[in-house]
């Protein structure tokens, strides 16, 4: 578990992120007490249940964290790396708000252990639009008002980017619907999302680059 102090957030206030991190630490201590060595023979290469060093490659940068094996990629991103773009909603691989791209494929960050994400190329919403330019998918979401409360939006944008990376020739709403079948929007902004993704597909083809 990360032990460094939270960065100052203002006049003596406790940040929400710092509070969550504190809860995580106490949960980890409880877990350690209640866990004993398995009856199975001790195997080579087993690690944990205490914190272990984990190296992640996120948006082209190497990040080191020390987390228990039970910590998901999503919680490592949000609670240990201050990358809060991927959202924790259902935490059961159902809603899609935590969608990231791992080795070129969309996955739910809540359903991947951080230790298991080592050695993979991870893209998160924070990696889009680097260099001050909005990514075409994100720009299309703005143009088509494809969000309301916005909490599902980073997941939708990453799922849409994953779709267009895999198939730049997307032309129909049916294709978009199938590709975004793993993402839910409780505000019901699907009409705008479908238009935005098709518009982004056209724009990216015209500009001739996935990250144009």
């Amino acid at each position: 578990m990360k032990s460094k102090k939270d960065p100052p957030q203002g006049k003596g206030s406790v940040s929400r992120r710092g509070f969550i991190r504190g809860v995580g630490v106490s949960g980890g201590a409880l877990g350690l007490v209640s866990t004993s060595v398995p009856a199975a023979a001790q195997g080579a290469g087993a690690m944990g249940p205490g914190p272990v060093p984990v190296t992640l490659r996120i948006n082209g940068q190497t990040k080191n964290v020390t987390v228990e094996p039970r910590v998901t990629l999503l919680d490592a991103l949000r609670n240990h790396l201050d990358m809060t773009g991927a959202k924790r909603v259902c935490d059961r691989g159902t809603c899609g708000a935590c969608t990231v791209i791992m080795n070129g494929k969309v996955v739910y960050a809540c359903s991947v252990l951080a230790v298991d994400a080592q050695g993979k190329d991870i893209q998160t919403i924070e990696g889009l639009g680097q260099g001050g330019r909005t990514h075409p998918v994100a720009a299309a979401f703005v143009r088509h008002d494809a969000q309301q409360c916005g909490y599902c939006t980073p997941g939708f944008v990453m799922a849409a980017k994953g779709l267009l990376d895999r198939n730049p020739n997307v032309r129909t709403e049916a294709e978009v619907e199938q590709a975004l079948g793993g993402n839910l929007c409780r505000c019901g902004t699907y009409v705008g999302v479908r238009k935005a993704v098709l518009d982004a597909a056209r724009e990216m083809k015209t500009r001739g680059g996935r990250n144009a």
Partner: peptide
């Protein structure tokens, strides 16, 4: 709950890490 984690490279190593009862 916390758990011990292993990512073996061979099937034989993986099998040695399993328990005899469910839950292990």
């Amino acid at each position: 709950h916390a758990f011990e984690y292993a990512s073996p490279a061979t099937l034989q190593d993986a099998l040695k890490l399993l328990g005899q009862q469910w839950g292990q």
